[in-house]
Every structure is written in C-alpha cells, then in structure tokens.
C-alpha cells in the first residue's frame, strides 16, 4: 500500500485479469490469489476489493479442536460427503509455524487423500505465521478468494487448539468442535473458550472406549448453560471419521444450525460482525504502516525514545505526539 493512497486504489490490469480467472474458478489463478493474500502483498487489497461482490455465497464451516482429535480426517470425510451431494468444496487447513525459525511443516494433506483430478475440491495448507488465534492472519481473506471462485462449502481447519484460540469464530458461519474420547478429562479444563464456541460437537473416534462418557460430560456441561426458547443448544454428534460413520448426521446437525441461524438472523449478525472486524483490522494495519512504516517515522520514534530516557517526556506523552492530529 502506498502512503496516502486510498485502499485498493490501484487496480492494474494484471489484478483485473487475475480476478477474472479467479471468478471462473481456474485453480492456478485461485492458488496465486491465495499466495498474494497470504503474503499481504500490496496488490492483495485491490484484488480482494475486486472479488468482494462475488463473496458471501459459500457456507463457511469452521473445524476446530485439540491436537490429534481427528480434524483433518473429519475434513476429508466431509469433503467426500459434500462431493457426493454435488457441492464443490474449498479447504483452508492451518498448521502452526515455528516461533523460532518461522518455518512450518504442513501435513494436513496427508489425511486428505481426496480423489485427485476432482476439480470440485481445492485444498490449501496455510501456516499460522505467528498468529495466536488458531488460524492465520489472512484466513478470512483466503476464504473470500475460495468463495469468489465459486466453491459451495468452505471448510476452515484450525491448528490443534487448547482453550482460547477461538479466532475461527470470526471466520465461519457454523463451528464444529471436534473432541475424542482420550481427551475426556480435558473437557473439564476446557469449559471456557473453545467449549463455548461450538455450534455442533463432534465426538470423533466414537468407536473407542470412553466415547459415552465424553458425550455425557459435554451434555452435562451444556445443561448448566443458561438458555431460552430461542437459544441454539449445540447437539453432540458421534462420528468415526475414518469410516465416515456419523458424518451424514453431523452435516444434518450443521444444516439445522444454519436453518436456526437464518430464522433468528444469527447468520446476519455473524456476518455483520465479520465485516465490522474486517474494516477495523484494515484501518488498524493501514494506520500502523502510516504511523510507523515510513523512514521518518522511525527517526521520530528514536527521538521520542531519547526524550523519554532524558526525562523530557514520558512514554504516554510520546505516544500522544505520534497520534494523528497531534503531529508537530
């Protein structure tokens, strides 16, 4: 983004051409657009601006849960299910980046051995790149690209999460929290955060001992939650992702959630929040680059640091110097 230029002002011919190809669903164009978005390249804003009118059609499902719960395997089973019903599927699968080297090993494809040559499925692995919310900073924009490319369903798979990495709430229309019997006791520890965001619980590996107890624990916890007549009570669905047992029930529960959301305008309010958050983030990042991105800003900051150290001002005084409207 150039300084002072309005967001998305420079839509050059290359962006237009790429946008056209994304709209037609050309895989290589979708892939390149995702890269530009993921790297927050200067042209990404223009690209997303152009694609925006084509977004909002896809059904965005968030798949989250602790490591080893079977998220990737469940995603693979969901892909197969949706393909059978003729729906096209886009997948954003996030795995963690190393906080030390910045590198990442993205292994979600291993479990998504989808029938290849099926142009109705597009899978993209993304590294979290320092984002601590369970997704990566550009996950929502990546979903927009897949949405604009005409995918009917978008599955957003988070990194294996603990308790409070709940960024997926902002990215999805419905959220599946995947748990497995071996994590039974963990449910106790997960009462806040992760356990609050589920629209549907999937008890995966339900053929293993402990599945009944896990289901009871979740139901017991849900019973303690205050609810009125209109409140959506997240159903608990047992699945065995490796054999796809229970997957149709899971999708049925999600469809029910969608219907409930539409009735109570919950979908709208989620989408409104999503747009609001997007505008906020765009303004914040643009402000950050305007205030701190320029070379003269670094010099001014250094001068203010020196002032603070010399006792001429405080960090609070220095900050008010930098804020717009207070420039010298």
């Amino acid at each position: 983004m150039t300084d002072g230029a309005p967001l998305a002002s420079t839509v050059d011919a290359r962006v237009r051409a790429l946008t056209e190809r994304v709209r037609k669903g050309e895989p290589s164009a979708v892939a390149r657009a995702l890269t530009l978005v993921e790297n927050r390249e200067p042209v990404a804003a223009a690209l997303l601006h152009e694609l925006w009118p084509d977004t909002g059609r896809a059904w965005r499902l968030g798949i989250t849960g602790p490591p080893g719960a079977g998220k990737s395997t469940l995603v693979a089973a969901l892909i197969a299910h949706f393909r059978k019903s003729g729906r096209t599927v886009g997948v954003i699968a996030v795995d963690p980046s190393s906080p030390f080297t910045g590198g990442a090993l993205l292994g979600d494809r291993v479990r998504m051995g989808v029938a290849h040559g099926d142009s109705g499925v597009f899978i993209r692995s993304m590294a979290s790149r320092g984002d601590l919310g369970g997704l990566c900073a550009s996950a929502q924009e990546a979903c927009d690209v897949l949405d604009a490319s005409g995918k009917d369903v978008i599955l957003i798979e988070t990194v294996g999460v603990g308790q409070t990495e709940v960024e997926v709430v902002h990215a999805a229309d419905s959220i599946v929290v995947v748990l497995h019997p071996e994590a039974g006791d963990a449910v106790q520890a997960m009462k806040a955060g992760l356990m609050e965001i589920a629209d549907v619980y999937a008890v995966n590996k339900a053929d293993r001992p402990g599945a009944d107890r896990l289901e009871q624990e979740i139901l017991g916890m849900l019973g303690l939650r205050p609810h009125g007549a209109d409140t959506w009570l997240p159903p608990v669905v047992r699945v065995v992702s490796t054999t796809t047992v229970g997957v149709p029930d899971l999708v049925a529960a999600l469809e029910k959630h969608r219907a409930h959301q539409n009735q109570t305008s919950g979908t709208d309010s989620r989408r409104v929040r999503r747009i609001e958050q997007r505008i906020r983030l765009l303004v914040e990042s643009e402000m950050r680059s305007r205030l701190f991105g320029r070379p003269e800003a670094a010099a001014r900051l250094a001068a203010l640091v020196a002032d603070v150290r010399a006792g001429r001002t405080t960090p609070y005084g220095a900050a008010s110097h930098i804020l717009p409207g207070n420039e010298p």
């Binding site: 895989p27 290589s28 597009f122 899978i123």
Partner: peptide, 26 residues
C-alpha cells in the same frame, strides 16, 4: 522447515498427477 521454509508434506503413494495438482493448489 528448520531453514524457515513452509513445507507441505503429502505422505506416501503419490502419483505424478497428484503431485502436480497439489503443487498447483499450494
């Protein structure tokens, strides 16, 4: 990965067309 790259590992038994399709999507 330790050299700072993002490595997508596909697992075993890949055919050339699977490899190229994954390379394109990723």
């Amino acid at each position: 990965r330790d050299a700072g790259m993002e490595v997508i590992y596909t697992g075993l038994r890949q055919t050339p067309s699977m490899i190229v399709e994954s390379a394109m999507q990723e």
